[in-house]
Design a protein around this nucleic acid. Structure first.
Lengths: 197, 197, 197, 197
DNA sequence: ACATAAGCGAGACGGTACGTCTCGTCTTCTG
DNA sequence: CAGAAGACGAGACGTACCGTCTCGCTTATGT
């Protein structure tokens, strides 16, 4: 996200060209996918976007921030959060959404980004709060409600059940373990037990 | 691991100074922990170790290899692989080993390194083959045997059960979710069901 | 000198603020004295003068012109051009004027500027045409008239006699040779011969 | 002159490649002549010399120093100092030497350098001591001897006569006044009087 | 009175060059 | 030969200005 994004802070001066935000982020995302994080040089992005270096530095203080923004931009996290009252169904929707992301085009982007989070805890926090956190909490709520409804036994480990799906999917992504089509269903079977006949 | 490690390939001349291996790897590990992978510059390591650059390049062809070696060196992966015939017990040993590592001093080193694997597939492969792979396969074997013994139902998802523990632990480490003492046991409960009375 | 100075070219619109001319030129002259020509950045001058960059570019097409104007402004070249019919007297007036300038406060400004002329021929031309040229020609005229009047012999080297004074003074300034009080008179003695009893 | 030129300061490490000194200075001098001082960019010189930027910065701390060195390199100041006992003849030799330099290929180089001296008094001093000073003193000696020999009247202004020639020549160079063939002789006539029949 | 037109502070824009840093290779000298 | 020291070509880093170009606003003039 470009610096000074929402603030109406400007008093004078020529306004930033919003088209450039997109061109820069696209270029950065392209570079990230094709050459990895190490290949995202500011000079390269500037050249690819047809933009001066200063125009990038005006928006992003350094490479890491640029990459974070590029990830958010390229992999628009606008997923709907399901809540039908059926735990297995809701869980399946959420797990499949992440599954599709990770095995799709955004996969590389996301795993490249996952690398960055460990290095920059502040960025990680910010990203988590804005994107991942929402989903984590929703998952917890879904599982919690299921316990209240009696769909799960009373002593069920809500937190762990909510976490396990994403944990396994990310583990696959980060270790290149492959994404066969039945993976989401297998995960559901593992954490909820096999579907009742 | 230094190049030409065991081979008796040398014919004459001054032998490599073995103290330097350690000094180099320590310097690299320090650097990795304090500044992340990007902070591990060959020049920096050379300076910190009081060594010439060529002395490093003589042992490691590039940064990635040096870092892998440094991680192996710093976090000696010499864990015993348990096989008592009791799945829950064996699993507990392995999960607790990883658990202690990740929440202990080596945690930062390992997560820093895990971050980089996504960025540098070559590095990841190299590390997996040498270190992680062995354990992954042993876990699979343990679970497989349990099915054969009847300790687990016939249709049990061996691969997923073997994976779930490490996946959840790494997820905690990479997302800063905390390592309360009961986490290993909760994981066992989740993937194996609660212990039989 | 600001572009479009006298022309009544304007038909409408807000008129230029004349105070700004002075503020800009003062800022530029300050900068020139303290940091040399290389230190005169348009952005710096704009900041120091509390003015937008465009306001400068509206008046001066580029740095060189701005600096020339600043020098003229700071070291007001409004010297009277003497013509009494007595060559030695007239020459003395002109030489002493330059002498006082070079050893006085403006000396630094002028030598700093003189240094740059060699580097920036455009700047030199512009300055010569506007400032130095007038005096050079006047000096030539004075010497020429003296020949016509018979004050100097017929074969006298008018051009060289006119030049020699400034040449020697500048040589002193640029080589730090000092400005003792009798220097002007010694110069007159050299190029005109000792005064007749 | 490259930094650390004569000192035997090195204890280890690969020695500087002396060929590069020449290639760099030639490139810089070329650039200086063809595009003026402003056209001497480090990047340009590096490219033209087929050399990395660091290789230049290792030798010269900045542009100015590089240019000074290039001037010294390109315009080897090895002139002979004449002393035949005939003032006019000796003076003519020295004045013609400077004359030829200033109107020849080195002229641009030298005037560009003259600019630099004003900015960096220390460099000026060093250069003067090594190159210009020798000639200045020799000129003074020549004129002084002429007085002693009775070739000049007893009250003659030795210092000024010695100075006038270079002063006028440099004045021509710095103000682009042209170098017609008879200039040296005219200067002699002015400061010594016309040759005796 | 009110459009027209320019001046103005501010600052974004595509560029170029700066001087610094590290890469991985190479060359020399000392043990 | 190993090792330290460090030069080398390459090229990215983040900064500073260049000269041009919008912005929203202010200030005259000319109808």
């Amino acid at each position: 996200m470009p610096q000074r994004a929402g603030q109406a802070a400007r008093r004078g001066g020529r306004p930033r060209d919003p088209n450039l935000d997109a061109r820069i982020l696209e270029a950065a995302a392209d570079q990230l996918v094709s050459d990895g994080y190490a290949g995202v040089s500011i000079e390269g992005v500037a050249a690819r976007a047809g933009v001066g270096k200063a125009t990038i530095y005006r928006r992003f203080p350094d490479r890491a921030q640029l990459v974070v923004a590029a990830v958010r931009f390229a992999a628009q996290f606008d997923d709907r959060l399901p809540d039908t009252g059926n735990l297995r169904a809701d869980l399946r929707v959420m797990i499949e959404a992440l599954f599709e992301r990770l095995r799709g085009e955004d996969g590389l982007l996301l795993t490249a980004f996952a690398a960055e989070r460990a290095r920059h805890p502040d960025l990680a926090e910010e990203f988590d709060r804005a994107v991942v956190g929402r989903k984590r909490e929703h998952l917890r709520r879904l599982v919690g409600s299921a316990v209240e409804r009696g769909e799960l036994p009373l002593g069920a480990d809500v937190a762990l059940i909510a976490e396990a799906g994403p944990a396994i999917l990310w583990h696959h992504a980060l270790h290149g373990l492959g994404f066969s089509d039945d993976l989401p269903e297998r995960i559901l079977d593992l954490i909820l037990g096999p579907p009742r006949a």
